[in-house]
Nucleic acid binder design. Structure first.
Lengths: 242, 242
DNA sequence: CGCTAACTTGAACGCCATCAATGCTTGTGG
DNA sequence: CCACAAGCATTGATGGCGTTCAAGTTAGCG
C-alpha cells in the first residue's frame, strides 16, 4: 500500500451471485483506467480529526481513499448523525447535487486521491467502461445505506451494537484483513452517532454484551466475539440467510 | 398517464445545481431509449397488497412503476421494516446481488414495466448514454436512503413523523402534483415500519401534531399542514439549507 | 348492511436520554 | 522519562417517552 498505481475502487459485484455473506470485493478499475485517473488526481493528506469538506459546500471534487478511515456526518442542531464510515477503496463526494450533502472528517490520519468533478464527468461521457463500475459501486453504497436504516430501526441498543459489529466484521473480511478481532478505528462518539444513540448508551451496550460474555474487548479499538451463537441471535434477528 | 410511450425514469439531477429543496425531477430516458426498453419490457399488474417479489428470491427482472405505490420491506422476526416507498417513475429490483435484497409489495393497485435483468445488462454494455442516467438515479436513491437513516436516528416520534411528512410533500412537489394536502397512499403500519416505530406510537404522534394545531387530517390518507413554522421547526432541526 | 381488518386509545413497564461527576488515556512540555 | 492537562469514555440517578398488551372504535369491502 506504499506506492499505489492510482485510484482504486473496491466493491462486491451486484450481478454475479456470490456466496451471500462471504462476498469479496473486487478492484473495479482496469490498470489503464487507474493510470488515466492518476493523471488528473492529486494526493491529499488529512490529519486525524481534520475536516475534508463541509456540508453544503460547493462540490468540486470527489475523493478516493488510499489509507485511513473517513466519517461522513450531518450535524443537526447540536447532535451529530454519522452517515457512514469510509475505508480505503471507497469513493465519496460523488452522490450530491452541486453541493456536498454531508460533511466528512478524517477519523484517523488519511491519505486520499482528490479527483476534480469536472474530470470525472468528462471521463464518464467519453469512456464507456468506467460508468458500469460506478453503477456497481453505487449499488453497494445503496445497499449499505439501507442496511444502516434497518439497523437504526432496531429498538434495543444491544441489538444495534451487535448489528454494527457484524457489519464491521463483514467489511473487514471483504477487505481481506484477519478477523480474529474486530478493529474499530473510529472513536466512541462516532459509533454512537452512527447507531443513533448517545455515547453513554453505547458504553452501557458494550458493557451489557461484555457482561453477558458475548464479546470481550481489551482495548477501546478492538473487540472479540466470544459467544458466536448468542451474538448471531442478536445481530441476525432478520435475514434468515447464509 | 393512460398509454405511456415506454418505461420512464425520473430523478433530480445530481450535478446541475438546482434550487436546494425545489429540485424538480426530469425524465432521464430519451424517446428512443424508452422505445428500446418498451420492446423488451412487459406490462404487469398487481392488486393492492400483492407481493411483487420476495426477499432472497433469484433476481431476474427489474421493475419500473407506471402507476401506483410500492413498498420495499424486510421482515425481521415478526416486525416489518420498510426500506422505501416507490412511486411512478421509480426503478427497483436493481440494487441487489443475484438475489433480491428486500421484498416488495404493492401498497395500492400497481401497473409496472417488468424488464428482464439480462436485457438491462445487455443494454448497459452496448448503449453508452443509458448508464449515466442510471448513475443519476442511483445517486438519488442513495441520497434518499441516507435521509431515511437520518430520520430514523431522531428520538422523538413527532420529529420522525414531521420529517416523513416533509419528505412526502417534497416528493409530491417533485412529481408536479398539487400540494395543498399531503397524500399518503400507504397504510399506517407501513408508515410505522418506515419510521421505525409501532402503529400505536405513530397514532399518538399524529394525535400530538394535530392537538398542537400543526397538522389537520380529515381522512386517513390526507394530511394538511396548518402551522408551517412549527412544522418546519420540527422537520428541519438539521439542514440549515435554502 | 354486516363483517373483518385496520386504526385508535388506555395503563403499566422498561429502556434510553439527560445531566453531571468520575476515571482513563493521549499527547505535550518540562 | 515523568508530570500535567485536556479530551474521551465510563458510571450513576432520575425522568420522559415509546413499547407492549389489551380493549374499544372506525373504516373499508363484500
Amino acid at each position: 500500500m506504499k506506492h499505489p498505481a492510482g485510484p482504486a475502487i473496491h466493491a462486491v459485484h451486484p450481478w454475479i451471485p456470490g456466496n451471500r455473506d462471504g462476498g469479496t470485493r473486487h478492484q473495479l478499475l482496469s490498470d489503464d483506467e487507474r493510470a488515466q485517473l492518476a493523471k488528473i488526481a492529486t494526493i491529499v493528506r488529512f490529519d486525524k480529526g481534520g475536516e475534508i469538506y463541509a456540508e453544503g459546500a460547493a462540490a468540486d471534487a470527489a475523493f478516493n481513499i488510499i489509507s485511513g478511515v473517513v466519517v461522513a456526518h450531518r450535524s443537526l442542531e447540536g447532535a451529530e448523525h454519522v452517515i457512514s464510515f469510509l475505508y480505503p477503496g471507497d469513493l465519496f463526494g460523488l452522490s450530491e447535487e452541486g453541493r456536498y450533502a454531508n460533511a466528512t472528517r478524517a477519523t484517523t490520519a488519511v491519505m486520499a486521491y482528490r479527483i476534480p468533478l469536472a474530470a470525472i464527468r468528462r471521463i464518464l461521457d467519453n469512456n464507456a467502461g468506467l460508468d458500469v463500475n460506478i453503477i456497481i459501486k453505487l449499488c453497494e453504497e445503496l445497499r449499505e445505506a439501507q442496511r444502516h436504516a434497518v439497523l437504526l430501526a432496531q429498538k434495543r441498543s444491544t441489538t444495534r451494537l451487535a448489528m454494527f459489529l457484524d457489519l464491521q466484521e463483514h467489511l473487514q473480511v471483504a477487505r481481506g484483513e484477519p478477523v480474529s478481532e474486530i478493529h474499530l478505528p473510529m472513536d466512541r462518539s462516532s459509533i454512537a452517532g452512527y447507531l443513533g444513540m448517545t455515547p453513554a448508551a453505547l458504553s452501557r451496550a458494550f458493557r451489557a454484551l461484555a457482561s453477558r460474555k458475548i464479546i470481550a474487548s481489551g482495548n477501546l479499538h478492538n473487540v472479540e466475539i466470544i459467544d458466536r451463537d448468542a451474538f448471531n441471535a442478536l445481530a441476525y434477528a432478520h435475514p434468515k440467510n447464509s
